[in-house]
Amino acid sequence: MKNRVRYTFILPALILMTIIVAFPIIYNLYMSLHIWFVASGSGPHWNGLKNYIALLSDKRFWNSIRVTIIFTVGALGSEVLIGVLLALFFNRQFKGKDIIKTIFLFPIAATPVAVALIWGMMYNYDLGIINVLLKAIGLPPLLWLADPKWVIPALIITDAWQWTPLILLIVLSNLESLPTDPFESAKVDGANSLQVILYITLPMVKPAIIVAAMIRSIDAIKTFDLIYVMTQGGPDIASENLNLYIFNMGFSYFRMGMASTLAIVLFTIVMAVNVFLAVIRNRDVT
């Protein structure tokens, strides 16, 4: 009886998930072993592992890996650092705290295409507010999105604007739920506030920080909307991350086999980073 119930409840969802999720992934894996130029009208040709081998000497692939790493490390690093610092700063009772928490939810919920569009305007050389501010404090204006050196920092700033609040709010809600005893006994023992933060607070919220970093890393590695709307990978390919390269391979050049191969590589990277973070977390928990 119990078994029958269990499967009646879960089977519909399992079947649907198999169709929409599992099947495309298997298809993707199969495609990654083929050459398929979809615009030519002919079907896929078996190519074994040669797609994967071809990647090793593909300069544009390595460029996209480099962009992915710099963007992810820069965005994740600044978001975690600023997010945790802000959470520590906000971790006390004050008037208007609830309103401020709500305000920080807005960037998280905002449509990424709209965010990218507005930041694109803000980075405009002549009219953008950011160069106006730079000039106001006596600094030279920058080309930002049009400058290969500044395009990734510019994208990181926008990403950090949108997602630092997520880290902040996750860590803050964890801080608020901590028991107060360790802090009181540390104060009795004469610890100063920096020591309390370093040796008591941070170790206690470390699991929450890692969870926040996991969630962000999954999305940062796969960033698409932001970059595609703001730069389309440019100037030239200076901001083309792996996800954009896959998109161009598939939907600009219609090389579906190669695009599938790249997609498998991207998936592997996301999985590897998350297994790594999960191992760190579980090591601390036990």
Binding site: I25, N28, M31, F224, M256, A263, F267, V270
Partner: peptide, 9 residues
Amino acid sequence: MIPFISYLI
């Protein structure tokens, strides 16, 4: 964790 593009193709 699977990139959306893996489903999209």
